[in-house]
Design a protein around this nucleic acid. Structure first.
Lengths: 208, 208
DNA sequence: CCGCGACGCGAGTATTTGCTCACGTTTCGC
DNA sequence: GCGAAACGTGAGCAAATACTCGCGTCGCGG
């Protein structure tokens, strides 16, 4: 397994020119990742696509994985943005509304850049530093847990944290497979309805 | 993305000595995969671990991926064996029994060689020939769909195929995350109960 | 027991890939 | 305008890796 290399930036770009260069590099990495997958994402190719020298790449990124990590971070930020935005209105929602909100949040999140999302999910091996980034859910799980906790009187949920975990893993699992096997479904309402049903039933039918 | 290379055996081993050799190679591949992950699974290393020459490896396998595919096939066969064995008794089961059967089947399947399963799931990029193998469910999905179809009077399920797909994707998604983030849960009964609840609720609560 | 094909070997090759480094260019404070 | 620091360059290196090929060995039919 091995491999656990530094991933933090080697040098912070301070002038505008260099900041633009870093941006160029990250965007190029994304494009290469999309077109050639993780294995085909070589540093030289990234430099070429970005139209910069390979030397410049290594001025700001300590190694190849740092590039990929940066791409993941950017994507993750967008995901998290969408999720928190949707989940903000969760507070006083009814069960049906809350579930609808959650499902649509996750669906929307998956619609941001599906192809990139898929590549990151499927092809990027989860090693070392990358692993932490794959903990996608930890950021918004508390929001859901909080809602569940607030409504625990009404819902027979024993452990809100566990329920949240199961729910999110289940929905995310389904979405993951959809992304791979049935990409078209992402746009279909039946999927959303089915997921809503799954969650509502799970929460309503809870005992113990 | 590229890459779509032959994966079928280059030559069939005919004598006993060579069949044992192939077996040795596949076992070695498994060990290397477990210890070093997909990226660290080099052909030379496999040969070394197997205690055979690299030349011998290429006598029966056209390339590196063919090795990995063979390992996946073996694992898959075991999985499928466990699943069908469990699901054989599905026919006249009640809802609760059927669900319990399904959940325990999937749990047992995931317990066969969890570490290998995890490596195959997490680290092996899904490319070309490998992709087909990742369609793990297609083999036993029909069994579940058939059961659902047989009981569709009693259960308000609109489309048994879709329901099966969602169910299996959900459970598999949860198990996948458990394998990675909470390996210990695999042995805990709460997980099984939670999954059973999820499924029963989904099927019972179905409307439309 | 012999001959031939299947088998097994491993040094070596061609290629790729991540990454460095010595040097030229731009930017900025003063 | 000038000096220094930040920036940008790309030829090329060291290492790794998938895979070949020519040769020696084994085993089986006759």
């Amino acid at each position: 397994m091995a491999r656990q290399r530094p991933v933090s930036p080697r040098k912070e770009p301070s002038q505008r020119r260099s900041r633009e260069l870093v941006d160029l590099i990250v965007k190029a990495t994304t494009r290469v990742l999309l077109k050639h997958g993780y294995e085909g994402c070589t540093t030289n190719r990234v430099a070429e696509v970005a139209g910069v020298s390979i030397g410049s790449v290594y001025q700001y990124f300590p190694n190849k994985d740092a590039l990929v990590v940066r791409v993941m971070e950017r994507h993750q930020e967008k995901l998290l943005g969408v999720m928190t935005e949707h989940l903000a209105s969760l507070k006083d929602a009814s069960l049906e509304e809350a579930v609808k909100t959650l499902v649509h949040a996750m669906l929307d999140a998956h619609r941001i850049e599906p192809k990139l999302h898929r590549v990151l999910r499927e092809q990027v091996p989860r090693i070392g530093a990358l692993k932490a980034l794959h903990e996608q859910h930890s950021a918004y799980e508390p929001l859901v847990t909080a809602w569940l906790d607030a409504h625990r009187e009404a819902l027979p949920v024993a452990d809100p944290a566990v329920a949240t975990w199961v729910l999110i893993a289940a929905v995310d699992g389904v979405l993951g497979r959809v992304l791979v096997d049935r990409p078209g479904w992402l746009e279909q309402q039946q999927l959303a309805r089915e997921l809503e049903r799954l969650i509502v039933a799970y929460l309503r039918g809870a005992r113990t």
